[in-house]
């Protein structure tokens, strides 16, 4: 009987969930998410992308970007490049990843001649998968 007495429910003293470390956990999560967030590496050029509704998303690791601004300047890897140097730059990326998709971040006001010249360069190195990046704007 004396044994039974021991397991009697405690009358006084509530059981508590320790909440003092909760803030630490929350801050830890906060810091973790802040540090692991990867921001876009390339700044590129300021462009106003065309708008499109039928857009598709590509995995980031497959993409190589070419920026073309309204004045026709071309930028790859944050460097202004000449049309003729596109070939070697893209070829290097293509050798690392044969499934490469070249994404154009081109201003909608750029002359088609420049785009045509760039695409011609891409054809020369068989970089045939191309994406014209656009801002998604749903229709209707």
């Amino acid at each position: 009987m004396a044994r039974k007495e021991k397991f009697k429910r405690g009358a006084k003293g509530f059981s508590k969930v320790p909440t003092s470390s909760m803030a630490d956990i929350a801050f830890l999560l906060l810091v973790f998410f802040m540090t692991t967030t990867i921001f876009r590496m390339e700044d590129g050029l300021p462009v106003e992308l065309p708008k499109a509704a039928a857009t598709k998303q590509f995995p980031r690791e497959k993409l190589a970007h070419i920026w073309v601004d309204a004045r026709g300047q071309i930028s790859i890897n944050d460097k202004l490049v000449d049309v003729r140097s596109i070939q070697s730059l893209i070829l290097r990326r293509l050798q690392l990843n044969p499934a490469l998709v070249v994404a154009f971040n081109a201003d909608k006001k750029v002359s088609y001649k420049i785009m045509s010249d760039v695409m011609e360069e891409l054809k020369q190195v068989n970089a045939t998968k191309v994406s014209f990046n656009a801002d998604y704007e749903p229709r209707r």
Partner: peptide, 26 residues
Amino acid sequence: AFLLLIFFLVTTIFNVEKGLDIVLPN
């Protein structure tokens, strides 16, 4: 702390790139 966490989670805009794909002739 959780409020801050949720605030940042909600307001973070991920850079999703979308485009129209086409295959050029080689």
